[in-house]
């Protein structure tokens, strides 16, 4: 065998010293018992969080104007989801860095058209009333420039939107069928029917809540509730939890990047954070192969504490 130079951070010396009895099965059994008892104790003492899910019904009941404004943004294509881009639609720029544009490369896989999926299809699933049927057919037969003119007129007046007597009211007469559509969708939401319509568009069974969750995420209501609980992305929210429970603290480094520029300010912030984390993760996995990094423990000398008995015996 040829003698290669000994690399202290890669090679290990051959151990020729004594062995001592060590019962690993007993150790494992004790560990399971201790962890199980500790788990039961922590569960009894601290329980666990379970804040009720919000529905589109609770949102539109608690904040009908926020809901109606969001509904308008879905109809006129100004909402966050409408302008999201891939994987939902071609509505906006995708995130990327230089030639790296994976979001764009993979394209639209979960097609969402906010006007039809969030507003028009749900309304068409409703029992017909003369005014709603007329408004829908007026909208559907209009040119897109007419539709834009209506939503713009409605949008311009929507700062003065009120909700009273169970009706969404906006002071404009130039918005065509839009006031009826928005009001009908708000009524539908407040009845709970929109929650159902958004999940059942693909049939009887569903386990997919993409549409109602995206709709919820476009309003201010969900985000306000989360910010109040310190769960916002710019509040290190990823590692936080509702109430006072500890959260996913192991995400500290991932959420850290969202707090500082350029990650916090870039339009491709998510992509940059993921890219950064992927590089750091690769470094973490490959520590044994990276000169410098793999020498840190030998220089830190914490091992001297761990193996103090071994070193003492050597002297």
């Amino acid at each position: 065998m040829s003698k290669k130079p000994f690399r202290p951070d890669v090679d290990a010396p051959e151990y020729k010293g004594p062995y001592a009895p060590y019962d690993i099965i007993k150790e494992g059994t004790i560990a399971v018992v201790v962890v199980a008892l500790l788990t039961v104790a922590l569960a009894i003492v601290f329980s666990s969080p379970d804040e009720k899910a919000i529905t589109i019904k609770t949102w539109s009941t608690a904040a009908p104007v926020d809901f109606a404004q969001t509904a308008l943004s879905e109809l006129n294509g100004s909402s966050g989801v409408a302008g999201y881009g891939a994987p939902y639609n071609n509505g906006g720029p995708s995130q990327g860095w230089g030639f790296l544009q994976p979001e764009h490369w993979l394209g639209v896989h979960i097609p969402i058209n906010t006007a039809t999926d969030f507003v028009l299809n749900p309304l068409e699933s409703q029992p017909a009333t003369p005014s709603l049927s007329a408004a829908l057919s007026q909208w559907n037969s209009a040119s897109s420039s007419a539709q834009t003119a209506w939503t713009t007129a409605y949008s311009n007046a929507s700062a003065k939107m009120t909700f009273s007597g169970g009706e969404v009211k906006v002071p404009t007469t130039k918005a065509g069928p839009v006031p009826v559509l928005i009001n009908a969708l708000t009524q539908m939401a407040r009845s709970g029917a929109l929650d159902q319509a958004l999940v059942t568009q693909k049939g009887f069974y569903t386990t997919n809540y993409t549409k109602p969750l995206l709709f919820l995420s476009d309003g201010a209501y969900l985000g306000n509730l989360a910010d109040a609980q310190h769960l916002g992305g710019d509040q290190w929210g990823m590692m936080n939890e509702t109430g006072q429970w500890p959260g996913q603290a192991w995400l500290w480094l991932y959420t850290f990047w969202y707090q500082i520029p350029p990650w916090s300010t870039s339009a491709s912030g998510d992509f940059l954070v993921w890219g950064t984390m992927m590089i750091l993760t690769a470094l973490f996995i490959l520590v044994p192969f990276i000169p410098g990094l793999r020498s840190i423990p030998r220089r830190l000398k914490i091992y001297r504490i761990i193996w103090r008995e071994h070193y003492a015996a050597q002297e």
Binding site: V45, F46, S47, P49, E51, K52, H230, E241, G243
Partner: peptide, 16 residues
């Protein structure tokens, strides 16, 4: 939180 069943000795169900 939702409903019953939160029999914790230390109640962590407040704003953090």
């Amino acid at each position: 939180s939702q409903g019953w069943g939160l029999g914790a000795l230390v109640n962590l169900d407040h704003y953090g």
